[in-house]
C-alpha cells in the first residue's frame, strides 16, 4: 500500500495502518523521514510519559492501571512497551502487554510492543518516532514502558516529558538506582507494592535524596502504590497531569523542551550520517581494499578518510 494512503488512514484512526507505519519506522524504511516531517506539525499535544524502574517492579501492572485512569477521563492512550532483544539472534519475546490485555477491546487504547533491536540505550530512535506518529494520530497520552535496565532508564528523558520511576521495597535496588543517577531524572516516584514490608524505608530514603537538592522549581512527589489493586494510582495520575501543566508554564519546562529538541536534531543528523557512512563504506569495502588493510599496506585512518571524502568532499579524519 502506498505510504500516503497508509498515513491518511492512520490519521483517520485506523489501527492497522498506525501499526504498519510503526513497522516502517522500526525497520528504518527510507520513506519514513518524509512521513514524519509531514506529521510533525500535528504533534506536541500529547502528554508523553515514561515509566521506568527495575524488572519486577511492577511497571506493566502500573501502566495498566494508569491507562485505566486516563481512559476514565476520556483520553486516548497509546502505549509503547519495550523489551530487550536477544543480542545473539536479534529476536525478542515481548510479553509486557499481558498485563494490559484487558484494554485490547477498547478502541481508545493502542498498545505496541517493541524490541530494543540492538540500540545501546534500550530505547531506539524508532521509539521516539513512534511517539511522534501516535501524537499526530490524536493520542492524548503516550506511555513508554522501558526495559528497566541500564541506560534505558536515563535515556527515557530524551523522549518523555514526564518520567515516573517505579521502585519496590525489598528488592535491594535502591542503592543501585542512586548510583546510576536515575533519581535525578524522575519527575514522579511510585513506590509500588506498598503493601509489602519495607515500604516506609524506601519512601524515606527517596525523600531524603530529594531533600538534598534545594530550591527546585518542581519537587518530585512520592506516591505509595499497590498497582495490583489500584491503590494510589489516582494520586499518581494527578501528579503526572500537574507535572505536564508545570512544564508548559515554567521556564524550567521550556528549557527542558529546548534541550530535548536539540538532542532530537542531533539524533536525526547522526542517523543520517550513519546511514550515509554505511552506504559509502559498503560500496568501498572491496576485497582489494581489505587486502591492503590486512597486509598493512594501507591503514584504517586512510581508508576512513577516503570513504568520508566520498560523502563530504575535502574532509580529513586526522
Amino acid at each position: 500500500m502506498a505510504v500516503d494512503t497508509l498515513l491518511e488512514k492512520a490519521l483517520g484512526g485506523d489501527i492497522r495502518s498506525i501499526a504498519r507505519i510503526i513497522s516502517l519506522i522500526e525497520n528504518d524504511n527510507p520513506e519514513k523521514d518524509a512521513l514524519l516531517k509531514r506529521v510533525y506539525p500535528m504533534t506536541g499535544k500529547a502528554i508523553v510519559l515514561g515509566i521506568t524502574g527495575s524488572p519486577g517492579a511492577g511497571k506493566s501492572t502500573l501502566t495498566d492501571k494508569v491507562i485505566e485512569h486516563f481512559r476514565r477521563q476520556g483520553k486516548k492512550v497509546g502505549v509503547i512497551a519495550v523489551d530487550p532483544s536477544s543480542p545473539f539472534s536479534g529476536g525478542a519475546i515481548l510479553a509486557d502487554r499481558i498485563r494490559m490485555q484487558r484494554h485490547t477491546g477498547d478502541s481508545g487504547v493502542y498498545i505496541r510492543s517493541m524490541g530494543t533491536r540492538g540500540s545501546l540505550g534500550g530505547l531506539s530512535r524508532g521509539t521516539r518516532e513512534s511517539v511522534i506518529l501516535l501524537d499526530a494520530c490524536g493520542y492524548d497520552v503516550i506511555i513508554i514502558e522501558t526495559v528497566g535496565v541500564g541506560q534505558s532508564e536515563v535515556d527515557i528523558i530524551k523522549i518523555a516529558d514526564t518520567v515516573c520511576l517505579v521502585l519496590v521495597p525489598g528488592m535491594g535496588d535502591d542503592i543501585q538506582i542512586m548510583k546510576a543517577g536515575i533519581m535525578e531524572i524522575a519527575n514522579v516516584f511510585a513506590i509500588n507494592k506498598a503493601d509489602k514490608p519495607g515500604v516506609d524505608r524506601v519512601a524515606a530514603e527517596v525523600r531524603l535524596m530529594l531533600d538534598l537538592v534545594k530550591d527546585r522549581p518542581w519537587v518530585p512527589p512520592v506516591h505509595l502504590t499497590v498497582a495490583e489493586n489500584g491503590t494510589g494510582i489516582e494520586e499518581l495520575v494527578a501528579s503526572i497531569a500537574s507535572h505536564s501543566v508545570f512544564l508548559k508554564s515554567n521556564p524550567d519546562g521550556v528549557r527542558r523542551e529546548w534541550r530535548r529538541l536539540a538532542f532530537e536534531v542531533e539524533e536525526i543528523l547522526l542517523q543520517h550520517i550513519t546511514r550515509m557512512t554505511e552506504k559509502s563504506w559498503n560500496a568501498y569495502k572491496t576485497d582489494e581494499v581489505m587486502e591492503l588493510l590486512l597486509s598493512r599496506k594501507s591503514n584504517p585512518y586512510a581508508v576512513a578518510e577516503d570513504v568520508l571524502r566520498k560523502i563530504i568532499p575535502g574532509t580529513r579524519v586526522v
Binding site: 501492572t61 519475546i93 510479553a95 499481558i98 498485563r99 495490583e228 489493586n229
Partner: peptide, 10 residues
C-alpha cells in the same frame, strides 16, 4: 478478591 494475572518469565 480480584483476579490473578500470570507472571511471564521467558
Amino acid at each position: 478478591f480480584g483476579e490473578y494475572t500470570e507472571n511471564i518469565v521467558l
